[in-house]
């Protein structure tokens, strides 16, 4: 066997070791633990932990809350990104803004969450500005935007984090797909600017970015640092809920944490598989 073939085998083995084995080992252990086959307090196969997870509302509330946060954040972010990318496309391709747009990408999620915390909390910057401007008279009148029931702080931070990515994506797409040509064509055929926007530009941009949108939806659903800092104890987003269960002092919660991890993993992988089967025309370059 020549050196090239050895390198090929080693390379494929490295790929398997780093990509497949960790996921397989992780799921294997978590499944066995959640079914009572492994673990300190477990003494044989049982469905008790899965029943407890599946038939108590906390998990479903957590999943629902994560879904709600992802849906609202992504919708608002995409709307903002489309407006900015379409209206400021020339400035975003050349000059100062074309560099400045990359600035928000240097903010880790945790730092952006901290910024939102300083800005939106009851005694935060906006509340102080509101008092100065006379919009409110005392601290209590300022709405609860951090650790609140509706996850406003989490949504706000997610929007700040996602929007720049989509602006860059849509600006690049607009350029690569030569949308100006489509715009001219549709207008020369008699479409109004609004119709061109609604029926030509936005559908093309959305269709071309559907895979990225689905990925970002899952990223936001699984986000950890932002809800950890800005979220409430109940309902929690799924990642925080899972880690919280794993790190509690009650050892009986650990099998449940593993059951939730497995369930969430399968749910996400299933959704992705379904999406890819349905949109098999999307080419993975």
């Amino acid at each position: 066997m020549n050196t090239g073939k050895y390198i090929a085998i080693i390379s494929k083995s490295i790929f398997v070791v780093f990509t497949l084995i960790p996921v397989a080992l992780g799921f294997g252990y978590a499944f066995l633990y959640s079914f009572g086959i492994l673990g300190i307090l477990n003494d044989g196969f049982t469905l008790a932990h899965w029943k407890k997870v599946l038939f108590t509302p906390t998990l479903w509330e957590s999943l629902g809350f994560s879904f709600y946060i992802a849906l609202i954040s992504l919708t608002i972010a995409i709307v903002f990104a489309l407006i900015i990318a379409i209206y400021l496309k020339q400035k975003l391709q050349k000059g100062f803004l074309s560099i400045a747009i990359y600035l928000p990408l240097v903010f880790p999620a945790l730092v952006m969450a901290f910024f939102s915390f300083l800005l939106l909390s009851k005694s935060g910057w906006l509340s102080r500005v509101s008092i100065r401007l006379g919009f409110i008279n005392e601290l209590e009148q300022f709405p609860n935007w951090i650790n609140d029931n509706y996850g406003i702080g989490i949504i706000f931070t997610s929007i700040l984090l996602i929007t720049p990515f989509f602006i860059i994506l849509y600006t690049n797409l607009y350029h690569h797909e030569k949308l100006d040509n489509y715009k001219e064509l549709s207008q020369s055929l008699g479409a109004s600017p609004i119709n061109t926007l609604r029926k030509v530009l936005i559908p093309i941009l959305l269709r071309k970015s559907i895979f990225t949108i689905v990925l970002f939806f899952i990223f936001v659903m699984s986000s950890y640092e932002v809800p950890l800092l800005l979220g409430k104890q109940h309902p929690q987003m799924i990642s925080v809920f899972t880690v919280d269960k794993l790190q509690r002092f009650n050892l009986l919660d650990i099998p449940q944490a593993y059951a939730i991890s497995c369930l969430y993993g399968l749910l996400v992988l299933g959704t992705m598989a379904l999406f890819l089967v349905k949109h098999s025309k999307i080419k993975l370059k």
Binding site: V23, L215, I218, S222, S261, Y264, L269
Partner: peptide
């Protein structure tokens, strides 16, 4: 897709 923190749990 699984989220790094969930992978960490596993």
């Amino acid at each position: 897709v699984l989220a790094p923190v969930i992978l960490g749990v596993l």
